[in-house]
Design a protein around this nucleic acid. Structure first.
Length: 368
DNA sequence: GATCCGTGGTC
DNA sequence: TGACCAAGGAT
């Protein structure tokens, strides 16, 4: 334990830096997960993976990564696509601003940079959606630049290893940045080995698989011997969640051979999921006596929605449809086969799949 | 610097 | 069930 008020020597001693790197890399070579964006040599794909991975779990990214790339195989293809298609491919990943900004950045790259990503962190940083972490990640992984990444994993690893108490201050962040910078190896790229890029990925991998937020697996940790805390690292409490009921209408009709479903577009100026499509929301008082087709939970940031989906009890009645409070211009009958092309909210996508209105592979069918 | 932006798995 | 979390960025 670092204890005491006497300037605990929290920075890693220089002698330990080489040892840390070597132990980390030896571990990484044996234990790196095989991920779709590992071992590729395509800056565009690395960029896509890094944007998708922002605040998003690996499993969720894997579900979208291949589909996104088959729809938009290159920067120029992405730049040429309508925004709604980009959002449709992003549906379910959340933080839709990421998709909008990446789309804009692709247009800048296509129009001003001859379709090639900038190769330095400084130039990458100028693109929309690419911040301090992402520019360093792409520059090191794709181009071998010796620059440290600091994400949530790296921060946790370094605070634990050095024993510095967590402080949400500029000084605390500076400390972590300096430690990370001291650890990145110099540029060295030869035949499939990229010292800085591999080191950065190894740091994140250690945080993601060993130095876990709770219950770190210290006995499996390659740098256990160098660690000051052995996993002690209290984290500040978060704001607490609330639960709210929500109701939606599932309304289907037949036109010729097609089944259509009534969808509602969210306002273009909404702060949340602007312009995306969902099932029409119903006022709670309209449905309070009714039995839903489906109940499920859906959490958005700090709110846990207790969702119920209703259909007309009598198919010839329009009682629920008439109860939709939204302006009619925002409502659209959509053939079920085209749902995959629509920028659906994650909740709408989840409900439509659960009720088999939309197949899990509807997107692929729509492509053909 | 604080706040906002989504989701779904896990326990 | 509620709490917690995951490779941040923009404003």
């Amino acid at each position: 334990m670092p204890s005491s008020s006497k300037a605990a020597p929290s920075a890693l001693a220089p002698i330990h830096i080489a040892a840390f790197r070597e132990k980390l890399m030896a571990w990484y070579r044996l234990n790196a997960r095989e991920l779709p964006w590992r071992g590729i040599h395509d800056p565009y794909r690395t960029w896509v993976s890094e944007i998708m991975l922002q605040q998003t779990r690996v499993a969720a990214v894997i579900e979208h990564y291949h589909d996104f790339l088959s729809r938009f195989p290159s920067v120029t293809a992405l730049a040429a696509a309508p925004e709604s298609e980009v959002l449709a491919a992003w549906s379910g990943l959340g933080y839709y601003r990421r998709a909008r900004m990446m789309h804009k950045a692709a247009q800048v790259i296509a129009e001003e940079l001859q379709g090639a990503l900038p190769e330095s962190s400084t130039e990458l940083r100028k693109l929309p959606g690419i911040g301090e972490y992402t520019c360093a990640a792409i520059a090191s992984i794709s181009f071998g630049e010796s620059i440290a990444v600091v994400d949530g994993n790296v921060e946790r690893v370094l605070l634990r290893v050095t024993g510095r108490p967590e402080e949400a201050t500029a000084a605390g962040r500076d400390f972590v940045r300096q430690q990370a910078a001291a650890l990145v190896p110099p540029r060295w790229v030869r035949g499939g080995t990229n010292a800085a890029g591999d080191h950065n990925q190894a740091m994140m991998e250690l945080g993601a698989t060993i130095c876990l937020p709770r219950g770190p697996l210290c006995l499996q940790c390659p740098v256990f011997a160098l660690c000051r805390t052995r996993g002690e690292h209290p984290t500040p409490p978060r704001s607490k969640q609330r639960s709210l009921p929500a109701a939606y209408l599932l309304s289907l009709r037949t036109r010729g051979k097609q089944t259509e479903v009534l969808m509602e577009q969210r306002p273009a100026h909404a702060s949340l999921m602007a312009g995306m499509y969902e099932l029409p929301p119903l006022p709670m008082d309209v449905v309070k006596e009714l039995e839903p087709l489906l109940r499920l939970r859906h959490s958005i940031t700090n709110t846990n929605y207790l969702v119920a989906v209703f259909a007309e009890a009598d198919p010839k009645s329009y009682a629920l449809r008439k109860a939709i409070p939204t302006r009619i211009e925002m409502l659209h009958w959509t053939p079920t086969g085209k749902l995959g092309e629509l920028p659906l909210t994650g909740l709408a996508r989840k409900v439509l799949r659960r009720l088999k209105v939309m197949g899990a592979s509807a997107r692929r069918k729509a492509e053909i």
